[in-house]
Design a protein around this nucleic acid. Structure first.
Length: 367
DNA sequence: CATCCGTGGGT
DNA sequence: TACCCAAGGAT
């Protein structure tokens, strides 16, 4: 632990801090679907969904997911296709592929019981230090830290910790602080309360210090520096990619879709055929050659693109010029290349960018 | 350790 | 508008 922190953490009256935090949480905690019981599987699913994702976004996904896959066994036995479909639109799709792989391991090697030791649970795919601590504390009452962005923000203020929370190495500083202050009577509520406080009171901008249950323990408030914390360095700017895509229909009215590779961006999701734009070659010629060379498909495109779809990811942006066209002759379908009806399209998981494309295409057709 | 990996909402 | 952000993990 950093030397300067030793002095700040000693200022905390541990018992009073725990009482103030826990009493506030018992009164003010939100009524969330994953708080109805402590089923380790449901806690697990909720924690994976909540990674980098807002509570309001997760709620409907969680309810649908648990209804469709209510148990470890149900998720382990499901087709990956249907699991990805249930995650469609939630983002960070490797989360759900790792979740299903981990659930299958729990079914095979742990008799379908989520393990309850740090070593075992951290060995599961997609379960890192935060999620391990969250499941252990919330589902099993084990006093392990669950340090997420909320906890780092809250503790950086309470203890005036000036480490850069954008650096991976900072997490252990906060874990150590949590280990010293966590309630051993109720680790579950302690960890959840820290996150709830970060979400409702100790917010990134304009924290509601006058409503804060632990204001009297907060050294940043005492010094008037709560708006200077946490320290977080900025990330670098994004990359821009220009794409050309085509919604292609065959003589039977079926649409051509392609399954993306099993790694990288939007892995294993379906898409309309698309290729990166070039400065040298005309868009329609690129598309025509791409469909022929990669998929052995002959096409006839409409003259002009229907629209351009802008789509912003966390680390890059796409601008997709969308064309429509017809397929000439036959298509050799494969695992990753299919012709499907408009109705069948709804069974496949698409990234939001391609959902936008499809919507724009349909509006053009209707007009 | 830095980068990759989605999306929608807030300011 | 252009950022910033949200219950992170894998590589």
């Amino acid at each position: 632990m950093e030397d300067y922190m030793v002095s700040t953490i000693e200022k905390i009256n541990k018992q009073e801090f725990q009482n103030d935090l826990l009493n506030w949480f018992k009164e003010e905690q939100r009524d969330l679907p994953w708080r109805k019981d402590q089923d380790p599987y449901k806690v697990w699913v909720s924690e994976i969904m909540l990674q980098q994702t807002r509570v309001d976004t997760v709620i409907p996904y969680f309810n649908r997911f648990i209804e469709k896959f209510p148990t470890i066994e149900a998720l382990a036995d499901a087709d990956e296709e249907s699991v990805l479909k249930a995650w469609e639109g939630l983002g960070y799709y490797s989360r759900v592929r790792n979740l299903q792989a981990a659930v299958r391991e729990v079914k095979e090697n742990y008799n379908s019981k989520v393990p309850n030791t740090p070593e075992e649970i951290k060995s599961l795919k997609g379960v890192g230090p935060y999620t391990a601590g969250a499941i252990l504390s919330i589902a099993y009452g084990v006093p392990e830290p669950a340090v997420d962005g909320n906890v780092m923000r809250v503790f950086s203020r309470i203890l005036t910790i000036w480490d850069d929370i954008a650096k991976a190495s900072s997490r252990k500083v906060f874990e150590q602080a949590v280990r010293e202050l966590i309630s051993h009577d109720n680790p579950s509520f302690f960890n959840q309360a820290l996150m709830e406080l970060g979400a409702l009171i100790c917010t990134p901008t304009s924290p509601a210090c006058l409503l804060c249950p632990v204001r009297e323990h907060c050294q940043a408030f005492e010094e008037g520096v709560q708006n200077e914390l946490p320290v977080k360095t900025k990330k670098k700017s994004m990359k821009h990619i220009e794409l050309i895509a085509a919604v292609l229909k065959d003589q039977e009215g079926k649409y051509l879709i392609h399954k993306r590779p099993s790694d990288g961006l939007l892995a294993n999701l379906w898409e309309f055929p698309n290729v990166e734009k070039s400065q040298l070659v005309k868009p329609k010629d690129i598309l025509h050659d791409f469909l022929k060379k990669d998929f052995r498909v002959d096409i006839q495109l409409e003259k002009e693109s229907l629209t351009t779809i802008p789509h912003v990811f966390s680390h890059l942006t796409w601008n997709i010029d969308v064309y429509s066209g017809e397929i000439l002759g036959q298509v050799e379908q494969k695992e990753d290349l299919k012709l499907v009806t408009k109705e069948e399209l709804t069974q496949y998981a698409f990234p939001v960018s391609h959902q936008k494309m499809w919507k724009a295409y349909q509006e053009m057709v209707r007009a």
